[in-house]
Write a protein that binds this DNA or RNA. Structure first.
Length: 922
RNA sequence: GCCGGAGUGGCGGAAUUGGCAGACGCGCACGACUCAAAAUCGUGUUCCCUCGGGAAUGUGGGUUCGAUUCCCACCUUCGGCACCA
């Protein structure tokens, strides 16, 4: 007899990897007779610092790709490298190596490491984004966008480190005080002319996910990011006739607009600021420009602003209202200008109180509560008793009456108040009703004008309030009113001329439509999504293929001159300018149109641009007539299954969808979406449950583990140790369990049983388990539930080991072993190939079909009937499968346990769940 | 503050449609093998218990014969957004 081989992954894994590659086993070529399946995993960045996290999206995805292959699909699973970008440039600066050298050295290392995983990557399709034959087409796409009006240039602020003399990306700015990552100098904003893509043009379409199977979580993140809100554009005029537009979602509050606020950067500020306010306005604008977005956008920050001296006219009521500037209004959202309705917007309310601007309520309270504080000495004696008599609730506090009334009691209260009010006093109603009762008049608090009228009277009557600038300021001094001064609910309109009484449900739309008719505005939709800034003042990226000609203007580089090569001999260390600007010759060129002297754009492109179309380059990485070979496109696209981290939900995954839709409209690609299915893996954490990082020293490096356990064990453990979409901490003891299981599987196949045993039922029971496992694993591969795939395989092997002495060398055993190896093959490709070979089966197991499920064999011929009394488990009875409900019922009532628990009582009800359970209710 | 996940043994996790809670694995305990250890194999392992049972899937309530699963409220926790007019 042959020697029994020992499981040695270090020997068999490289052996099979070499063989598969030599045979081109996983080469994916167009085959019109087969259904294609394009599997894609997010391309790795060339950090050179490969840890287990890089395996996590790839290994289980690979197992699934192999499963699809065995299901008969023509599967393509390509890989490449995201090779441009800041980390590379920084690492190179730090170690004084050219970014190109650093990057390509890392790629070498990563290729080697990825090969040890035993993935079915088709390496012929590898694409590297920093390769000129790749970025030639990145540049070509830029020009397509430019020619189709989707790329434009405008001034935009960037973060700038005055010490390093360079622009910084958002992730390079650290801490609350926003200092430079390298030298800790606080960063400033600098306005630079930069290139943008019109992502906003596709905002609406990007919200539609009908044709794609993407996780709800990603769709929600993107939807929130795009931030659609419906409202109206309203045209306001300054009192000198300049028009300006504002966006509002609450056109129903238009009558309550008591001031306007412009973003400090708003272009109109320059024009309208009056000479006496100019100094203050300029100072404020300067402070705002120095502040970071984070400082400006901190919601808990106290609101600040300054008056411009100018006034606007509210189109609906002609009110003359002051125009302020404040940094809580953002130039980047809407029109950078708002109407402030402090009665119904929390921010405006805080601002109005601080600066003494009038607050006018124009929307009814939903709870209908009105409050009034009746000060001691303002009414005749007996007023309190009369209130009691009318059933109006109040509490007494230091002689004052704190009244809270319902809508229906307001008229009674007014009547009583008026008849009891002493001279030189007033009583106010606050909340659902806003009225000031004076001895000679009742004045509605319903307009900016009446705000002043009321205040003038009050100041005269009570010197205590003489310092109050507005009614609301006066009322806010009383804590009893605190909860009724402001609300943001959709109540019915009040104090709004002919619109008063319009129900809250439809008010916004009614007003917006009316504005449209008047020519004062229009129904509008606004998005938080902004256009994509793609300029980077950096070296290690694809140059933007634009030439600036003094005569012809902005000229795209002609196709035949692409790629605009990134020069190697450049000072890539930070100097304060785009490195390409400092190159002695690169920058200077001739205009493609007039052949006169011209200059190149010296900024490079955001790397998200490179990663927006890499799935297209994989189709034909060497193709020269276009970004991809249309033949390949027609066969393989769209991507059928895409896997990667959730952290890309709002960046890469929006950009790549935008890219595809834009290219569709330009006529380069077809279909509405690039990736049909998306699944996100979680993150593998260090053993300390913290994010893996060099500084923490908790990084799990794959190389050591591969030599200790083998790639198969690691692949299986990555699938097993947690829910894949969730991730979790790595466990160095946990992996032992997976390793033991593969060793047991090996021994199970290669070693004969020590003792033989007779068990006539074993074969049938084994087949049953085998086909049940097949059912569950087939299902779990489809649903990305990798952990239960491994546990099902473990269960099956446990069962096989148990039955082995009884079925050794029978047909049932051979079927079980062959099937077991086939379903193990996607998970652990090396050990299954080796054992397949050991059994004398023809190479390769990876060209086998997924085993057929025998539903008959999977059926149990006995069932365990669960017997409950009052929902509590009392007995289990084994019965033949397919037992009738009547027989199950009968058997349950005959159970000794049941009889004991019935204690002679008759069941009220018996519930039978066919083949599963009987519940006896007494 | 708003939006969205998630809470199950000592740990990771499992549980088709509402039907045996804790599969599978780790860890632990005991046993076998060994001079011994490692490795391997076997047995046990939610908690309480008067050995009849009882309690238990974040908490409290509800629907149901029956709830980890459905509904309501709350708590904890993770992620995203955060002055978005």
């Amino acid at each position: 007899m042959d020697q029994i081989p020992v499981y040695n992954p270090a020997e068999i894994e490289p052996k099979w990897q070499a063989r598969w590659e030599a045979d081109g086993l996983y080469n994916a070529d167009i085959d019109p007779n087969k259904k294609k399946y394009y599997v894609l995993t997010m391309l790795p960045y060339t950090s050179g610092d490969l840890h287990i996290g890089h395996w996590y999206p790839m290994a289980p995805t690979d197992a699934r790709a192999r499963f699809m292959r065995m299901q008969g699909y023509n599967v393509m699973y390509p890989i490449g490298f995201d090779a441009f970008g800041l980390p590379g440039e920084n690492a190179a600066i730090k170690n004084n190596i050219h970014p190109k050298v650093w990057t390509y050295k890392n790629i070498e290392q990563m290729r080697r490491q990825f090969r040890t995983m035993g993935t079915m990557f088709d390496w012929r399709r590898e694409a590297i984004t920093a390769d000129p034959k790749y970025y030639r087409w990145t540049q070509w796409f830029f020009i397509q966008f430019f020619n189709n009006g989707l790329a434009y240039r405008k001034y935009s602020p960037v973060d700038w480190c005055p010490s390093c003399n360079t622009t910084l990306a958002r992730e390079q700015v650290w801490g609350e005080d926003r200092h430079c990552e390298r030298c800790h100098t606080p960063v400033i904003k600098k306005d630079l002319e930069q290139w943008f893509f019109r992502t906003t043009k596709y905002a609406e379409e990007l919200l539609n996910y009908d044709s794609i199977d993407w996780p709800e979580r990603v769709r929600t993140l993107q939807t929130n990011w795009i931030g659609r809100s419906e409202g109206a554009m309203v045209i306001f005029k300054t009192e000198h006739g300049e028009n300006f537009e504002i966006f509002t979602t609450r056109s129903d509050t238009l009558w309550g607009a008591s001031f306007m606020v412009l973003a400090p950067e708003h272009p109109l500020v320059e024009k309208i600021t009056t000479p006496e306010h100019r100094a203050e306005v300029e100072a404020y604008r300067l402070t705002a420009s120095r502040q970071s977005d984070i400082q400006r956008e901190a919601a808990d920050k106290e609101k600040t602003g300054v008056f411009t001296g100018a006034y606007a006219i509210n189109p609906v009521n002609g009110a003359r209202i002051p125009i302020w500037i404040a940094d809580y209004v953002l130039m980047t959202y809407g029109t950078g200008a708002i109407m402030a309705v402090p009665g119904h917007d929390e921010r405006d309310f805080a601002f109005a109180l601080k600066y003494g601007l009038p607050v006018i309520p124009v929307i009814a309270r939903l709870d209908g509560v009105t409050k009034s504080v009746v000060l001691s000495g303002t009414v005749k004696d007996g007023f309190a008793d009369q209130l009691k008599g009318s059933g109006i609730q109040f509490i007494e506090s230091e002689g004052h009456l704190l009244v809270t009334m319902k809508q229906s009691q307001v008229d009674d209260f007014i009547h009583l108040a008026k008849s009891n009010l002493k001279n030189d006093a007033w009583i106010e109603l606050v909340g659902a009703t806003w009225k000031f009762i004076f001895t000679d008049a009742i004045i509605d608090f319903d307009s900016v004008k009446n705000d002043q009228v009321i205040m003038e009277r009050c100041r005269k009557i009570n010197p205590v309030v003489a310092g109050c600038r507005t009614v609301m300021e006066m009322l806010s001094g009383n804590t009893f009113y605190k909860d009724v001064l402001f609300h943001a609910d959709y109540g019915d309109m009040i104090h709004s001329d002919e619109f008063s009484g319009t129900p809250g449900k439809t008010a916004r739309y009614d007003v917006a439509k009316w504005l449209e008719k008047q020519g004062w505005g229009k129904v509008a939709v606004n998005y938080k999504l902004r256009d994509w800034l793609i300029s980077r003042q950096r070296y290690w990226g694809a140059p933007i293929p634009i030439i600036y000609c003094p005569k012809c203007g902005t000229v795209p580089v002609p196709d035949e001159d692409l790629p605009v090569l990134l020069p190697d001999d450049v000072e890539w260390k930070p100097t304060g300018e785009s490195p390409l600007k400092l190159h002695p010759t690169w920058r200077y060129t001739t205009c493609p149109k007039c052949k006169g002297k011209a200059e190149r754009e010296t900024d490079t492109m955001d790397t998200f641009m490179c990663s927006s179309w890499y799935h297209l380059r994989y189709l034909s990485p060497d193709y020269e007539k276009g970004p991809f070979d249309p033949k390949e496109y027609d066969y393989w696209m769209p991507v059928d299954s895409y896997t990667g981290g959730i952290e890309h939900a709002t960046m890469h995954l929006i950009y790549t969808r935008f890219f595809h839709k834009a290219l569709r409209d330009i006529g380069v690609v077809e279909g509405h979406e690039p990736m049909l299915q998306l699944r996100n893996q979680g993150m593998v954490l260090g053993e300390d449950s913290e994010k893996m990082s060099k500084s923490r020293g908790n990084v799990i490096a794959p190389d050591k583990l591969v030599s200790a356990y083998g790639a198969d064990t690691m692949r299986a453990y990555l699938m097993f140790f947690s829910r894949w979409d969730q991730g979790g901490p790595w466990s160095s003891t946990g992996i032992d369990g997976t390793s033991r299981w593969l060793k047991r599987s090996w021994v199970m196949v290669v070693e004969p049983p020590l003792k033989r045993r007779s068990d006539p039922a074993a074969a049938k029971s084994l087949r049953r388990k085998l086909h049940q496992t097949l059912i569950s694993i087939t299902r779990d591969f489809e649903t990305f539930e990798f952990n239960t795939i491994i546990s099902a395989l473990m269960e099956l092997s446990n069962e096989m080991i148990k039955h082995k002495p009884a079925v050794w060398e029978t047909d049932a055993w051979h079927e079980a072993v062959e099937t077991y190896l086939k379903i193990l093959a996607p998970v652990a490709p090396h050990i299954s190939e080796e054992l397949w070979c050991f059994l004398g089966k023809p190479y390769s197991i990876h060209q086998q079909s997924w085993p057929m499920i025998d539903m008959e064999a999977a059926k149990a011929d006995e069932i365990v009937l669960v017997i409950q009394v009052n929902g509590k488990l009392r007995d289990r009875i084994t019965l033949p499968a397919g037992v009738s409900d009547e027989d199950a019922h009968k058997a349950a009532l005959e159970s000794e346990q049941v009889i004991r628990h019935l204690e002679g009582r008759t069941p009220r009800q018996v519930i039978v769940v066919t083949g599963k359970l009987v519940n006896i209710v007494i």
